[in-house]
Amino acid sequence: MSKLKNESDKVVGKTKEGLGEATGNDKMALKGKLQNAIGKAKEKLEEAKDKVAEKTNDFINKHEKKDDDEK
């Protein structure tokens, strides 16, 4: 669900940015840039969280296997 929200933030942000630039509305363009940046940052955070979880699971599985082999 959050991946969809992040993508939505990026798309809506880009749309606002383009609309703001096309109409000369600097405030809307800036808000769009900010929303796009927030979507990208959240996306990177999700990726990092997934990598940490994967590495943690790999570590746990490796040590559980080692413990089982020692029995």
Rank of each mutant, 00 (worst) to 15 (best):
D58Y: 02
K3W: 13
V52Y: 10
K27S: 15
K44F: 07
I60L: 04
G24V: 02
E7W: 07
S2T: 14
V12Q: 10
K42P: 03
A37N: 00
K10V: 14
S2F: 14
A48P: 06
M1V: 12
K66T: 09
D67C: 10
T15N: 11
K42S: 08
D9T: 02
I60Y: 07
F59L: 13
L19N: 11
N61E: 15
T23P: 00
D9F: 05
K16I: 00
K55Y: 14
E46D: 11
E64W: 10
S2L: 15
K49R: 10
E70G: 05
V11S: 13
V11F: 09
E54S: 06
D9C: 07
L45D: 08
A53Q: 07
N57D: 05
G32E: 02
K62V: 08
L45P: 00
L45T: 08
N61I: 11
M1H: 13
K42A: 06
E64T: 12
L19F: 15
K65H: 07
N25K: 03
N36D: 13
T23A: 09
D9A: 07
G39F: 00
A53H: 06
E46S: 09
G20H: 03
K66L: 05
K16H: 01
E70H: 04
T15A: 15
T15L: 13
K55A: 11
K33W: 02
E17V: 01
N6Q: 06
L34S: 15
S2R: 13
G39M: 00
L19I: 12
K31H: 05
